[in-house]
Design a protein around this nucleic acid. Structure first.
Lengths: 228, 228
DNA sequence: CTATGTGAACAGCTTCACAGCG
DNA sequence: CGCTGTGAAGCTGTTCACATAG
């Protein structure tokens, strides 16, 4: 059928947004939604929404729109989150602990299967009150990765060790890394990386506000604005 | 000279990455760097690097490359981080507290000027050991925003109140929002939003790994891989 | 001879506009 | 009719390739 290679990356990103929106919408009365409605909630054109969904076959009803529940199931299937992904959290510092208590993990099809840290004083302890999962030592991780089929890692370690840790994770069999360290990871072609760097995001805002601004705070409108 | 409106958004994003890389590089011996070297560290072509920089004038030396220190200053100037931006952190929950202790704030030209939360039991307390800044009540924020010229906000509040809080921030004069809540914020055209949603990122990885995979963990190469 | 800056070619993504279906 | 699905057009961003500078 459809090989995922020829799906535009921006389209995949938007699928996640559609899904998030639909999940919110479902909790209301809505049974069906049009591309126009869905687009408006996300500042995306209706044509874009239809194109994105059409990459994966046709499941809208002309004259009606899309059935919300069915569309949710479909997008989950496309993204691969119709099954549970075991995830390892690497690094139990400030950020790591906050990420551990993120409630969206479970709700979205991800299961926090292990928390590891190299600091021996943390090993064995429960670092987040919300998660009754003790910190494991890094050495014991390889076994867990195989035993629990863990393919995704969230990397919340200091920048200066991020590449080294990533290399080890990949050697263990990790296939996707959500990187919170402010470095550009070098990984083989068969490993995916997504990066979150607060400084990078703040700099985008700084640039945009500088461009839009140059007038007293909160005055006339200026330009597109939304960064993503 | 150059109006920032006609600079591609992806180029601006890459400027942040160049800057990050250059700042790391400077701590080594490097005095000068070529577009090729800089690109290789970030998996970007040399032509792309030159195009991006050329949007803002010419400051490379043919045959030599770019002077690292000068380029750093130049990019900071472009991004607007050659001055200090006061930032308010809204929401002192798990994530908010972790973000508060983020050491990159100061290093990158941002200053955490206030931490606010609506929970009265948190007001007045120092929630992060690294930051001696007590939590302020939301009511007192408007005054602070004006007094300290705070234009940027980091939003770390629950999803169901994110839009409402964003509206209030904008009314106070906030011009850029780094949104950690899993919702699509609706903002006027003269306000910028950057969003970070861990679920969205994990879903991208899930999609990529599903596509690349379909073989036992850690085997042959497949496709591009890097998501950003 | 190395590396920049840049028009021109190319590729990829988005929008348009409309045929066709319920 | 309303709304989808989709070729075709349009636009934006990337890569090429080369003239030019040191």
């Amino acid at each position: 059928m459809n090989r995922s290679e020829d799906i535009p990356a921006p389209a995949v990103r938007r699928l996640s947004l559609y899904l998030r929106q639909l999940e919110t919408l479902r909790d209301t009365n809505l049974r069906t939604i049009s591309s126009k409605q869905l687009g408006q909630a996300l500042n995306i054109t209706d044509a874009q929404v239809r194109k994105d969904l059409a990459y994966f076959g046709q499941f809208g009803q002309p004259g009606i729109g899309y059935e919300v529940d069915a569309l949710i199931r479909r997008i989950r299937g496309i993204l691969g989150t119709d099954r549970i992904w075991n995830v390892v959290l690497v690094g139990a510092g400030n950020l790591g602990r906050a990420l551990a208590s993120y409630r969206g993990f479970a709700r979205k099809g991800f299961s926090l299967a292990a928390i590891v840290d190299t600091d021996p004083s943390k090993v064995g302890k429960v670092v987040s009150p919300d998660v009754n999962l003790p910190v494991t030592s890094f050495d014991q991780l390889a076994a867990r990765v195989h035993a629990d089929d863990i393919r995704l890692a969230v990397l919340a370690v200091p920048a200066d060790v991020a590449q080294e840790v990533a290399d080890q994770l990949i050697a263990m069999g990790i296939r996707g890394i959500l990187n919170f360290a402010p470095v550009a990871l070098q990984v083989p072609a068969d490993v995916s990386v997504a990066s979150v760097d607060m400084a990078v995001h703040l700099e985008q805002l700084s640039f945009n506000v500088s461009a839009t601004g140059r007038q007293r705070p909160h005055n006339p409108p200026g330009m597109p604005g939304d960064v993503r």
